[in-house]
């Protein structure tokens, strides 16, 4: 199995890992993926993937406003807000 690029995965997942964490996680992931590769021995040609354990269809909700919005309550635990907005460090577009 090819080396797993932990730094790339960490970038995608927005995680900051130290060099030491990268090497520990890298070893763990190698072991996990070796275990996972047992799957490859099973023939799955002509098998439909199963996404949900019950073969049900999506239910459709009537187009009605059912939610009451308590902004102040929702923002009580927010890390930073002003004038009802959530604040983050400036985003450059």
């Amino acid at each position: 199995m090819a080396d797993i690029d932990i730094q790339h995965l960490a970038n995608l997942a927005q995680l900051e890992l130290s060099q030491q964490e990268i090497s520990v996680v890298g070893e763990d992931l190698q072991r996990i993926m070796i275990m996972v590769d047992q799957m490859q021995a099973i023939d799955t040609s002509n098998v439909e993937p199963l996404a949900h354990p019950l073969d049900a269809r999506q239910r459709l909700r009537p187009d009605q406003i059912t939610e009451t919005i308590e902004r102040d309550l929702y923002q009580q635990g927010a890390p930073a807000t002003a004038d009802g907005l959530y604040l983050v460090p400036r985003v450059v577009e």
Binding site: M39, Q40, I42, T44, V47, E48, P49, L50, A51, P53
Partner: peptide, 15 residues
């Protein structure tokens, strides 16, 4: 395909 889709197919077989 090698991991996620494969796993979903095996999930079908197990069910």
């Amino acid at each position: 395909d090698a991991y996620y889709l494969k796993a979903q197919k095996i999930r079908r077989l197990i069910q």
